[in-house]
Amino acid sequence: MLEVSGLRKSYGGLTAVDGVSLSAGKGETIGLLGPNGAGKTTTVSMIAGLVRPDAGEVKIAGRVLRSDTDPAKRSMGLVPQDLGLYEEMSAHENLHLFGALYNLSGAKLRHAIEEGLDLVGLRDRARDTVRSFSGGMKRRLNLAAALMHDPMLLLLDEPTVGVDPQSRNAIFDNLEVLRKRGKTLLYTTHYMEEAERLCDRMVIIDHGKIIANDTLQGLHRLLPTVKLLNVELADGKVNGLRAEDLRELAGVESVELRGSTVRIGVRDLAGDSAVVLRWLTDRGYPVQHLASERANLETVFLTLTGRSLRD
């Protein structure tokens, strides 16, 4: 459905995107991950035809995207990071406009509007101006606006920025529905948990270059074999506990004190955990709660780049 090869874009002396290539099959959901300024939005902008690449090409359903009026754009819907909505107009009026941009009219347009409003749960607010909407509702409408012409490929540029958890879940539910309908999604985010929940495959980008492109399982194989153990001490008793002492234990790779919780990296979760717990109990640090933590994409990114995704 989507093939991107060798995309490159520079602004003055700054190379924003440096030879990005990726592809997405029909019905596939691809996560494009990277910290702020990594080149995600520029990549999406080039795929959407908003920014002309210095080099490389974009193919939508096998056709190379060439100009502003290229019919290939009809196969694509964009959910921009900035809310691309007219706040002075109602939800219905916004959707009417964005449908008309793709030459929809009459019953076909009305049907598309109703379907869009139903999907994002805004039918009862259709006649209200967007200005009166909450941030989450605006984001949902932003999604509906990209669906008016029923595109096969949906480009989602950080579609949940600044929304509350409830609205975020609502958007995820909407995207799950679209996946089931066979849409191809390219989902840009710097929230690991979003990508983990939604995406079949992750493309990790940093400094304009792709540094990993694999399934979640494949990326986990890139991780070092360290497991994380979160130990919460009773009554917040961390007085006198020193990270250096714990680190001297065999099998302990890292120690981090966070309030009444100690975060410990161990090589062998079963064997080394027992040693750590006995050591703490013997020294008068009773354990109130114990949890192991699965390494996530954040850890993958940290491992690959040496910095956090939220940097």
């Binding site: 902008s45 959407a48 035809g49 908003l50 502003d68 009026t69 290229d70 019919p71 754009k73 009809r74 694509m76 819907g77 964009l78 921009p80 990071q81 900035d82 809310l83 691309g84 909505l85 007219y86 964005f98 941009l101 793709y102 606006a145 990209a146």
Partner: peptide, 15 residues
Amino acid sequence: QQGVWKRLRAAPLSR
């Protein structure tokens, strides 16, 4: 500045 043009330009429309 608000980014509204982006959605318009994502459609197959000429300048």
